[in-house]
Design a protein around this nucleic acid. Structure first.
Lengths: 231, 231
DNA sequence: CGCGAGCTTGACGTTGTTCAACTAGAGTGG
DNA sequence: CCACTCTAGTTGAACAACGTCAAGCTCGCG
């Protein structure tokens, strides 16, 4: 009974969204063929290059979309996503193999849904399809915004963008416990680790942020926005 | 009668796709509230920042997705698209204002559809919705691949990517009339005009490509792929 | 206590942008 | 039909931005 309740809460976010569009009966169909899992920080939820057999619903935690380049052995973080959200946008859209990996940045609870089951429901229910696609495509928009940032701005502007994103879309506040390493910040901002560090040091001196250990506080968000704007 | 035939051909690509999923009756609904237009090279089809009232179907021609950055006054070409294809992916997905402009790179024929009419149909017909989203999302995938290229490679690898993309996805061959200026190539590859020129000169000396005027011939596509891979 | 991973700093070299000068071709008007 | 101008393309040199390297630091954990 306790277990049942836990399971109930486990996918409640997804269930709540779904039941606005599909019947309880139809939701049971999804439930039967899906699993819920916990992932520890650093574990891979969906792997780049694999076949997309599942759609993931992120119930709690934070994940990164990680692209590994064979050519030079470098990682790029396309975007970060915090719960609750539908992951596996790539899988929703294409039949292609996963473009990137999805990796837990903090401990996560995930609800893995068989994609062909979900797809059948989407085809039967246009409103559900439209709603899910709109949710899922948010991540694409973020990737594109990130692209634009990388393409147009130099380091400082990009790192400012990263912190504005963390503050606005991930931690929802100006004060948070950073769960990314400096290396991950660098992979997100597309620059070297040293550059992240130097920029952060500079910002500390200018009293734009304070960092101690993993604790980050943005003291002057307007200045950050300014830096982002200038590029 | 001749006019009718022309009009018939005009949106035939979109009609053909649509009629696999919706009835002729339903298609008439779209037809009634839509317009077909011609755009000259350089003209803007959908403008960045405007409200997305229409979805565009590109019947013929080539367009660029152009992002203009207020901060530094620079353009970035997110991706190029050749007909026939559904444009306005951004509009399909979000209610937000257009993230970027869509601009004709060659003369285009476009079929502008009122988005709320189309959306009503999508909600009623899940199979149609899924099909359209899959087509539209191809452009997102290309933007992300482009992002990865910009993030990981240096200029020569990026310019190689641009030419491989032009050859494979736009002109469908190793020999074509380039409709982009050097400036546009630079905006696509995210580097300076001078860098594009120097790289192309170098490739000519190495007999990887030949260029005379707008005529481009890729003589050694494997070498280009090699350059792309190394980055 | 010692080891290793993550973090920090400064020096140095490479990459790529900016600038300035020049060329070629297309369009315009006298 | 020839200057004139305007735009696109081209080249090289100077300079700034950024990544790489090397060395040292800190902190948590065995």
């Amino acid at each position: 009974m306790v277990l049942n309740e836990m399971a109930e809460n486990y996918y409640s976010g997804f269930k709540k969204i779904s039941l606005q569009f599909i019947t309880a009966e139809e939701f049971k169909q999804i439930e039967k063929t899906s699993v819920h899992l916990r992932f520890k920080k650093g574990e891979t939820i969906l792997k780049q290059g694999h076949q997309p057999t599942h759609i993931a619903f992120l119930q709690s935690g934070i994940v990164k979309f990680n692209f590994f380049s064979e050519g030079n052995g470098k990682n790029t973080i396309l975007t970060l996503v915090s719960a609750p959200k539908i992951l596996g946008g790539a899988n929703l859209f294409y039949k292609d193999n996963n473009l990137f990996s999805i990796v837990a940045v903090e401990d996560c609870e995930v609800f893995l849904i068989e994609s062909n089951i979900l797809f059948e429901l989407l085809k039967k229910n246009g409103r559900f399809a439209v709603a899910l696609f709109q949710i899922a495509s948010d991540m694409f928009k973020q990737s594109i915004l990130n692209f634009i940032s990388v393409a147009n701005k130099q380091k400082e502007g990009r790192i400012a963008d990263v912190f504005l994103y963390l503050s606005g879309e991930i931690y929802f506040g100006t004060s948070f416990n950073l769960s990314l390493t400096r290396k991950e910040l660098a992979e997100f901002a597309c620059c070297s680790v040293e550059n992240v560090i130097m920029t952060l040091s500079k910002w500390q001196q200018e009293e734009i942020i304070t960092i101690s250990g993993k604790k980050v506080e943005i003291k002057d968000i307007n200045k950050l926005k300014q830096i982002s704007k200038i590029g």
